[in-house]
Write a protein that binds this DNA or RNA. Structure first.
Lengths: 203, 203, 203, 203
DNA sequence: AATGAATGAGCGTTCATTCAT
DNA sequence: TATGAATGAACGCTCATTCAT
């Protein structure tokens, strides 16, 4: 029983792995179910035994990836008490996660957007979850008097977008070689903007 | 002859208009050539007379939109001498342009990403052009001593991403009602970060 | 224009002809769209240009066949004044029509039944139309005093079923060689039953 | 051993029952093996242990139903000495059997026809067996001088078809509520036709 | 005997593209 | 230039059947 479950989980996982690879290589629409089945050394029917449709497979991928990323970031934030340090930790974790999982980055930042209307909701949820995480940080920092009052939601989305675009550049042009190299500069930008006012390290 | 050319241009433009609408409504892959032809009150054959393929049509749309946006931003920047003011003008113009052309925003920020590998290059070019515009500003500002030295390319992409995400939120959730309302907060974030250090207005 | 319409009608008709042949040879479910396209020397896409689905194609066939049969029978009945003669004419015409269009008989009596729930309504309509035709005859004959009062609807269905079964036997076993040979015996049965009471010819 | 056989028979019977229900609800082609297995609270593998194929399962159903019906009719006929009374008994029994086993009626009169070429033979056999039963009656009645000579085979098929169609109407339109109500009228029609000549009761 | 995960051939349908008119 | 009927490769999905356990 346990063995069967394990094998089943294995098969399912193999399918998800292959799906991630094929979806990110060809894009949602150009990814053929046949190709995913072949890549996972399964049959088409086997795939459809585990996932009811192509859409559901992609959604499962999206869910897994979103959840994993969120969990990692949340856990990284949990180990910091200071609000701004928590934001810092989030940034580091995101860069680390994407930097070490190129496919996951591609999935969430590129393919999910163009996969069709059906996935918009999911993506919005992810954006909202991330933005909420950051917005909470910022609100706490405001309460703690670390930063002046501001539109935390907007700032959170702006942060998120700034990071995303840097990841996107890395994905598409390969610059810089190590995504995590961007951490210091990004941190400074998010905290102090381009003027760098108050950034003691940069002075 | 001139009349024919003009009529041709009209037809071509009608096709582009309809294509923009259909592509942004359904997404690149789910947009049917039939639908575009119908929407432009032409025939499929007529469409193929003006554009050799679906891909070319989308590319033309992307080109036109990118160029128009870039021209507008460049022209807005040209009328400002001060480097940081130029950046400011660019931000205002981008928010204004996207805010008043929802479809254009959707096309460039959403559909282009998911349309397939063939369009990645085009999108990279657009990103690069925008980033270059902003990076030049920042470099000038550094030279002028307005801001401390920094990785201008990275900062440019971060800026660009921050703005994009705010636009994206507006596209997908409708917040805020008027995109341009975000200008003051965004300006402050880009210049001074969340700490707002040096932001005399916010103090 | 007229030529195009004609060619179009030709193509459509060719499709219907091939569809009739393939559907009656393999049955609705085992008939492949590919096969129909091949048989009509068209492409699958061409078929789908004229008919939106396999179901619609079968339905069109059913409609055409029903209508043609009903029209023929109605016209045969129209030329007779006497109620019972009208019934006689209907019987002759049905036997003649089915006898000379084996495929049509197969379509209406065999394939339509097993094609699926979607066609039941259509088939019921046909049965109802036929039964109504005959029931009217019988009602008129009652009014004219030619036959005693009876449940005309039930009798109509029984007649219809009797004829159908004879056609079915012919379809499936090939007996008798000429379907129309069955006319005199069928006529006598329908009018006088097995007792033949009142059948002056049989006495 | 006996227990196992009994359990096996039980399982087999449960499968047949569920199969009858599923086949008549969805039609042969649209009935899924999965559905039958689920309905009988067995597994797909279990089903395939008892029946080698979907076709064989349907055939078994057809066989059982045909045999049961024939046995009932034969037994009903056996208790009558007079040829025409025997026919009468057959008619009563058929109406009673179908009237109280709607699914059986559907199976034999509707689904079997459209299930595909493979079942034609079986169906022909059933038709032939029934026709033979009735034809024998009629032949005997001729010999006994009760009715004039006639093509007994043809008459038998006509009878059979007349009854079938009345059953079919009941199945598909629900008229009349009780199938057995049709007995007197049908009896009269089969014996005396629409003229009712010789029908003392109708006079 | 029984289970249900796995197989894979086959099918209906779509749609970008072509081309005779 | 423009039309729209025609093409055909490709795809998502189904489901009867198999087989390791």
């Amino acid at each position: 029983m346990a063995i069967i479950q394990e094998r089943s989980r294995t098969r399912r996982q193999r399918l998800l792995d292959s799906a991630l690879e094929v979806f990110t290589r060809y894009g949602y629409n150009d990814a053929a179910i046949d190709e995913i089945a072949r890549a996972s050394e399964t049959s088409k029917g086997g795939l459809y035994f585990h996932f009811p449709s192509k859409q559901a497979l992609f959604l499962a991928l999206l869910d897994d990836a979103s959840e994993a990323l969120l969990r990692r970031v949340e856990s990284a934030m949990a180990s910091e008490a200071d609000p701004l340090e928590r934001g810092d930790a989030a940034l580091r974790e995101v860069l680390h996660a994407f930097g070490s999982h190129r496919l996951l980055a591609r999935l969430l930042l590129v393919e999910a957007l163009g996969a069709g209307k059906e996935f918009t909701t999911k993506l919005n949820d992810l954006h909202a979850a991330f933005a909420a995480l950051i917005a909470d940080c910022l609100d706490d920092a405001v309460v703690a008097g670390q930063i002046p009052p501001l539109d935390a939601r907007l700032a959170a989305h702006a942060w998120y977008g700034a990071v995303n675009q840097v990841v996107l550049r890395w994905l598409m042009t390969g610059e810089p070689q190590q995504l995590e190299e961007t951490y210091p500069a990004l941190r400074s930008l998010l905290l102090f903007g381009v003027t760098g006012a108050g950034d003691e390290q940069r002075r």
